[in-house]
């Protein structure tokens, strides 16, 4: 997916960008409002992440302008204000959602997915491997013509594999993506989700292979 990040704090922007790229997304960064306007007018973005307090103006004016110009790119506001009244005014101005800083990256991702799902008609990001097509936004999986619905953690796990077929993912890496530091589960919990994915992928040309002591890998049956 292609994101536009409007954030004046360079360090935070760097962190968000590198994380997004790590996840296989494309992300452009605008540090000031004028750049943001220029970017949003030229580029085709699936989603805009917008900070409200910017050095050359208020992000809210960008939001209003964005909505007035009939652009339907969804906007998620990154706000430093936590009060309900501020959040409500954000939505009134046409933001699709907001996250309060500091935020959990997985939560931001979950909100992006939810917003994109709501905006049906927004760019569909269907990925295909062999006879399996996978829509990580909607959580749909089509295996050899038969549709299946994935739960959130299953789809997050599958998304990782889909982005890098053939790559070996150590167990802890997968674990970090699925669970927050807060979740009181052992690393072996990952095996449960691998098991479920295998079940979903039954009858397809794809398989998740366990590499003892190394981790897991998504293999395309034809090549192996």
């Amino acid at each position: 997916m292609k994101f536009l990040l409007v954030e004046d704090n360079q360090e935070l922007a760097n962190a968000i960008c590198s994380r997004m790229q790590m996840d296989g997304h494309v992300i452009d960064h605008a540090a000031v409002l004028s750049d943001a306007v220029a970017f949003s007018e030229t580029g085709e973005y699936d989603l805009i992440l917008l900070d409200i307090m910017l050095p050359d103006g208020d992000g809210r004016s960008f939001l209003k302008r964005h909505r007035d110009s009939q652009m339907d790119t969804p906007v998620i506001v990154l706000t430093a204000r936590s009060q309900v009244s501020d959040r409500i005014s954000m939505l009134d101005l046409g933001a699709d959602d907001y996250v309060t800083k500091p935020f959990d990256h997985e939560e931001l991702q979950a909100r992006c997915r939810a917003v994109l799902r709501r905006k049906s008609g927004a760019a569909q990001t269907v990925m295909t491997l062999g006879d399996v097509s996978f829509d990580p936004v909607a959580g749909h999986l089509v295996v050899a013509g038969s549709p299946r619905t994935l739960r959130n953690r299953e789809l997050r796990l599958l998304e990782l594999f889909f982005n890098a077929p053939g790559q070996i993912f150590p167990k802890h890496k997968l674990f970090d993506r699925l669970f927050s530091y807060d979740d009181d589960v052992s690393e072996n919990a990952i095996e449960v989700y691998i098991g479920r994915l295998r079940k979903h992928l039954e009858g397809s040309s794809l398989a998740i292979t366990t590499l003892r002591g190394l981790g897991y890998r998504l293999d395309q049956g034809d090549e192996s």
Partner: peptide, 27 residues
């Protein structure tokens, strides 16, 4: 208050995002 929240929350967000990214990498 808005300015104070912004001044505090934005660096906190930076810390958290970097910590999260690093968490993905260190073993």
């Amino acid at each position: 208050i808005a300015e104070a929240a912004h001044r505090v929350r934005t660096p906190l967000a930076t810390v958290r995002a970097h910590a999260e990214n690093t968490y993905q990498r260190v073993e």
